Computed example of a mutant assay.
Amino acid sequence: MPIAPQPFTLACQCCSWRKTFLPSSDVLVLNRDWFSHCPTCNTPSPHRRAATLKEALKTRLEQFLTPHG
């Protein structure tokens, strides 16, 4: 049975770019669910860490308020 990963944050140490991800599946799509390079400055391997509760709640609220369709 697939288990979704815990929420995580990717952060670039060069340009301070940061994004929190809330995976809904164990299938992670490159450039949608994670990044191998920073999308701002193209630095390889952004630092990955567990998302804080505040980051996860903020991201969930942003997803809820974003119009889809």
Rank of each mutant, 00 (worst) to 15 (best):
F64Y: 11
K58I: 03
F21E: 00
A4P: 12
P39L: 04
L57I: 04
I3R: 08
K19Y: 13
N42L: 15
E55A: 09
P46V: 12
P46Y: 08
P7W: 11
E62C: 14
V27T: 13
K54Y: 11
L22M: 07
T66D: 01
M1H: 14
S24M: 12
L10F: 04
P39I: 07
M1S: 13
L30R: 10
L61T: 10
L61M: 11
N42Y: 15
F21G: 01
F8R: 00
S24P: 06
P46Q: 06
L57D: 08
D26G: 06
C41L: 08
L65H: 02
R49H: 10
N42Q: 15
L30G: 00
L28F: 03
R48P: 02
P44K: 13
E55N: 08
P46N: 02
T20W: 05
E62M: 15
H47S: 05
P5A: 05
V27C: 07
L61E: 06
A4H: 08
G69M: 01
A56S: 15
S25A: 12
T20P: 00
G69I: 01
Q6G: 02
F8L: 00
P39T: 07
A50G: 07
A50H: 11
R18W: 04
T9E: 03
K19V: 07
D33C: 06
M1N: 11
C12S: 09
S45N: 10
L61Q: 07
K54E: 14
S45G: 05
L28T: 01
K19Q: 15
G69H: 08
L10M: 15
T66G: 00
L30C: 01
Q6K: 15
K19D: 05
R49T: 15
V29F: 09
T20Y: 06
